[in-house]
């Protein structure tokens, strides 16, 4: 599994990650980011892409 952490002090809810990995990241009805804290290994590529495009570099991935 991959553990996903978003530093919500940094996150500005730009939603760039949503496009790269919509299974994990979503903007809710108030345009705020919501995400799942875990994802299967085969999503690593999408998750790295999401972390790469985060303007605030707020997304950290850890492989368990």
């Amino acid at each position: 599994m991959i553990k996903i952490d978003v530093d919500m002090n940094k996150c500005q809810h730009y939603g760039q990650c949503v496009f790269e990995a919509p299974e994990v990241f979503q903007l809710n009805a108030d345009d705020k980011l919501e995400y799942q804290a875990e994802a299967p290994d085969e999503m690593l590529g999408d998750l790295e892409a999401a972390a790469d495009v985060c303007p605030m570099q707020a997304i950290t991935l850890m492989r368990e």
Binding site: H13, Y14, G15, V18, F19, L27, A29, D31
Partner: peptide, 11 residues
């Protein structure tokens, strides 16, 4: 301006 969900939908 704001409305990010709606703007994202255009992608």
């Amino acid at each position: 301006i704001g409305m990010r969900g709606a703007v994202q939908g255009y992608r």
